[in-house]
Amino acid sequence: MTQAPPREYFEFFGLAPALSLDAADLQKRFYELSRKWHPDRFSARPPEEQQIALDATATLNDAYRTLRDPVRRAEYVLTRNGFPIGEQRTKDVPPELLEEVFELNMALEELRSGDSGVRPQLESAREHFLSLRAAVDGELEELFRSHDSGGGETVLSAIRGVLNRRRYIENLVREVEKALGARATA
């Protein structure tokens, strides 16, 4: 009789819950598990087993989508460790970050209302936001390593802070790209 696989993503992949992981290894495991649980292989089995295979495939796809993306992977680990994003209040966002994001948004808004002449400024704003995002991703990588070598709660809460910051920067990137896109079609 086929047993249902673990619902926990790392366990399903046979991995330790580490934040740094090898993308090629993850992909290899994903292909192997996809073959193992492919519903076609269960077509001659009893209905309960077919259902298990179907559920396993759905979980596997969710798990792979989550684990292969560093930000989603970190969100998953944080949520499982009691640092979910949903229950936060303002106090968890440092005032300097809000000031900075507010100023960046103001500058972007001013550029968006400008004529086609502001395109170079929009492009340099995009470069700036992308470099902020790259810096945040570098910070995350380092924190992932500290987490994996037993960093504990302090590191998890630092990761929470960096992910919050990243979300704000991601919004700015999206807004500036929208502004550039609108100008390209005009």
Binding site: I85, Q88, P95, L98, F102, R167
Partner: peptide
């Protein structure tokens, strides 16, 4: 007052 909601990236002054 300057506040923010990290879940959606909003900022409000």
């Amino acid at each position: 007052g300057m506040v923010g909601a990290p879940e959606c990236g909003d900022v409000m002054k």
